[in-house]
Design a protein around this nucleic acid. Structure first.
Lengths: 194, 194, 194, 194
DNA sequence: AATGAATGAGAGTTCATTCAT
DNA sequence: AATGAATGAACTCTCATTCAT
């Protein structure tokens, strides 16, 4: 049985998005060249425009890809307090294993100032992230895995800030991000045992 | 005594750097155009190249400017624990009063992956920052303003991570950064009173 | 009897020619896009190339269509002098009712400088037109509807020039073409009564 | 004495306009390529954009050039009836000596449907032309060079229509335009002797 | 110290055309 | 008879940089 027709062209689309994703990570929006994206996939530049009429529409597709990529780290595993620990580790690991994601997210974050469609989506994702964290903290407290004070918007915000900082290369270097994360775990954990 | 002749051209140099600084903040490296920088200052593009032979050299000057701008927030005021508090507030206020600085620093942080000279300088600044924080924590603990556990590389790293996250626009929106900072102060403060 | 299979594809061919005809009228050769022509008919661009291997061949078909469209106005009705009057009015009405034809003919006239096949056909049509006018004038004079001087190549040429000018949009605006035509009729008519 | 500075760059501007003018005449708007225009002048394409930010602005300059070129034929010489004769001949000669002008004017006339700025200017020029013709006819009649009926908007319109038709290549070929013009002169002249 | 003019290299985008299905 | 996918060649426009003055 041949692959469904739709699947064929979807594949090319995805290849292009992935190539753009990698190039943004490597060179920033500053260095994103449609011709290079097409070249990496091995197609003519006109083919890229067959799938994405404008560079901007390609960027939007990369935005979607990055967001869906990131949202996988929010998927729950284990008890609430385990989920919390897992989430911190999952984000950390994702940043180390797929450093492109961090770069792209930071690039998008910076671009969001000038691009409302990015700002809207990013804001939504962050709101969702906060809500998830908030809920996780509440359940972990209820479960007894954390002490009462940990159930606050401030703690959720601090977790998010720390993880967000890790998207910037300076924080990944010299262990800086890891140190911060471990301290966060320590405080969450110490507190829970206090 | 009249200003030295050299001072006149220094002024022009600084005007150009400031204009570039503002434009990077506003449009990112992606949107930085030497012609616009020259235009903002009111000089011909060739004049800009008289002061900065290449775009890269202009960017380097902006890097220096941003770093020196940031380092002012590290200047000590008051007792160690007061200095710590002041530092958090100073960085926060700086980000709100001069949002350009945050944007430019984040832009530089992203660019550092591709530009070794930026990476080196940024790394040095962060190392200095960490050392300063570490020293501040030690003195604050010694002074009795913080409890012993606060004296750690982890806490220094967490402070830095949180403040770094605030350079990204997403964290400034919706109060996210402030919530994180207040939580950080709470933990530092709670601990100090424990 | 069902329509022959060939008739089906003939229909498509004609649809494409008509769409191209309309688009040339609307946007000129400058703005003629094969994709838009195909789009207007609702078929794929590759389908257009099934009927017309090249853009040039499509244009040639439009040329044929425009010429045959125009030649209908030369069909005789009534007495020679009535035919003359009718012809002037028929061309004028055609230009007002189907302004596409004027535009397309003017576009073709301009293109004829660069395209010999157009020039040949256009020249033939104009020669035929002149011959027809000439004959009409002769018969109208013989019939007594016009005085002798009207029977000349000059008068035929002047009629053709005036009608040709009406293919240009500037002449259609502000009544300019109509004024000219009426004057032409007046002179022809006045003379006839002299 | 060196040429005034301004004159130097004006010269380049004019060279570019003239080159564009020639190319529009030769290939139509359809075939107008900024690179070829620059090439004909012997400068880089970027230099063309230094003088004309967009292709459109270049076309507008060509429009101005063509109009001013045409308006020279309206300059008066001799008595009113002589001026009239001279004008007909001047336009005819201009079309033969500088066939580019006819082509460009016809191209502009066609483009005016889609481009309001062209339409406005062309309309103004034609209005001025009509007024001038009208005045000329009146004075020629008063002077006794033409009989009374020649003083009408219709005659003015017919003259303009005939001359306008001569901008189209088909009318220049095979003597068609000349025949029409001579007939026009005959009618105007015959009448004057009547 | 400053500029107008010029440029090479390359950017994103368009378009007629082709081909396997 | 018709199409989705692909392409080569070209298009207008941009930008950092240079140079004579």
């Amino acid at each position: 049985m041949p692959p469904a027709k739709r699947a064929v062209s979807e594949k090319r689309r995805e290849e292009l998005v992935l190539a753009a994703y990698r190039q943004i990570a490597e060179r920033g929006f500053e260095g994103l060249r449609t011709r290079d994206v097409a070249g990496e996939v091995g197609v003519n530049i006109a083919t890229l425009h067959y799938y994405f009429p404008t560079k901007e529409s390609l960027i939007r597709a990369v935005l979607d890809h990055a967001m869906s990529r990131f949202l996988t780290t929010l998927e729950p595993h284990g008890s609430p307090s385990a989920q919390l620990r897992n989430h911190l580790r999952a984000v950390r690991n994702l940043m180390l294993e797929e450093p492109e994601l961090g770069s792209v997210m930071a690039e998008l974050a910076l671009r969001s100032v000038r691009d409302e469609s990015i700002r809207t989506i990013l804001d939504d994702v962050y709101d969702g992230w906060h809500t998830t964290m908030r809920g996780l903290l509440r359940r972990a407290v209820k479960e007894g895995g954390l002490r009462r004070e940990a159930e606050s918007d401030g703690v959720a915000a601090l977790i998010i800030a720390t993880l967000t900082a890790m998207t910037l290369p300076v924080m990944l270097d010299a262990n800086r991000g890891d140190q911060a994360l471990r301290q966060l775990e320590r405080w969450l954990g110490t507190v829970s045992s206090g």
